[in-house]
């Protein structure tokens, strides 16, 4: 596969949106389809032709964490197929399964979303922070108004982390994507939902263990709940058929927000601003230097991946 990487200026962030160019599946996408989406996406993001080198451009040696979002059980969590495709990519390109940890706040949530737990010391691990020997670190980390203990998965067990959220509407934050997913890494997320989660969501992502372990955001945007989230409400699900990749956590969410807003408009819903849920934490995150929130400073590239290969799309929609 050859994807020509655009030449970006240094002060621009890059977001790759890879869409499945095929018939909408009855259920979610398969592992194989996700695998191809990720392949096209990481090559486009890294530039070049070697997939292994593309992954290694972003990921450190050592152990990699994959933070999924399993709040909403099977219907509206990070699909197991996406996590499996990502793990397969990493193992296919040189990383030992023992050096990968798929993780979430609790094992119960992982299991309810269809993940198979493995909290042992061997093999691909899949565990909650509540697993035996994990827990939260003893050090209280602070950023602005946020003061939290952070999962030991981040503080002690991984060298870098891939954020693997699912894009959805959120009743308080406006949107739940990559940055909101990191609420699952702290011990007291309930304290930080006032004010549309702003500036708290930005400050959570600025906590030292979260900020320094961050490597990539890969957001599942195949089936998007555009209203009524974060729990599952069937009537507000729409098919978009893509994943969003970026090494800029703010830019990844900024593009995800464009998609979410478009789906709401297409379905005749008022804007997030009109319903009192503006996504304000993105600007707060940019102000903290976490990434780009302004679409004018984000280069967005949209790819279509289907049976015929990879093609460039004209736009997001």
């Amino acid at each position: 596969m050859r994807i020509t990487c655009l030449m970006y200026t240094n002060n621009m962030s890059t977001v790759i949106v890879v869409k499945h160019n095929g018939r909408q599946p009855d259920r979610g996408l398969s592992v194989d389809v996700y695998y191809r989406l990720l392949e096209a996406g990481i090559l486009a993001l890294a530039g070049g032709e070697d997939i292994g080198r593309a992954w290694n451009r972003f990921l450190p040696a050592g152990t990699v964490g994959i933070k999924v979002n399993c709040l909403a059980k099977k219907f509206n969590s990070t699909p197991v197929a996406l996590a499996e495709a990502l793990v397969r990519h990493l193992t296919d390109h040189g990383r030992d399964a023992n050096d990968i940890i798929v993780w979430e706040r609790t094992g119960r949530e992982l299991a309810a979303a269809g993940y198979t737990l493995n909290a042992s010391a061997n093999g691909l691990r899949c565990l909650g922070t509540d697993a035996n020997g994990v827990g939260y670190g003893q050090e209280l980390h602070s950023s602005g108004e946020v003061n939290s203990l952070v999962s030991r998965v981040l503080t002690d067990m991984v060298d870098g982390n891939i954020n693997l959220p699912v894009l959805k509407d959120h009743s308080l934050a406006g949107m739940s994507g990559g940055m909101k997913n990191m609420y699952g890494a702290i011990h007291n997320p309930n304290k930080y939902h006032d004010g549309n989660c702003s500036p708290f969501c930005a400050q959570v992502n600025a906590l030292e263990p979260i900020r320094t372990r961050y490597r990539l955001t890969i957001t599942d945007a195949v089936r998007i709940q555009y209203n009524g989230g974060p729990g599952y409400v069937a009537q507000y699900m729409a098919y978009f058929g893509g994943v969003i990749l970026s090494d800029d956590p703010v830019a990844a969410d900024a593009i995800a927000l464009r998609i979410l807003k478009r789906l709401r408009a297409d379905n005749g819903l008022p804007t997030l601003e009109e319903v009192g849920r503006p996504v304000r934490y993105l600007q707060a995150a940019e102000d903290l230097g976490l990434g780009k929130a302004d679409p004018d400073e984000i280069v967005t590239k949209v790819l279509l991946v289907g049976e015929g290969g990879v093609a460039h799309a004209g736009g997001l929609f």
């Binding site: 709040l71 909403a72 309930n190 304290k191 006032d194 009524g228 974060p230 729990g231």
Partner: peptide, 25 residues
């Protein structure tokens, strides 16, 4: 409406949607 609840135990009156918790956790 829509499956949410309004907690009325303390002055915060948290508005809590499905699967979420109030400020107290």
């Amino acid at each position: 409406d829509g499956g949410g609840v309004e907690c009325q135990i303390c002055p915060r009156h948290c508005m809590v949607t499905d699967l979420e918790r109030g400020y107290c956790g």
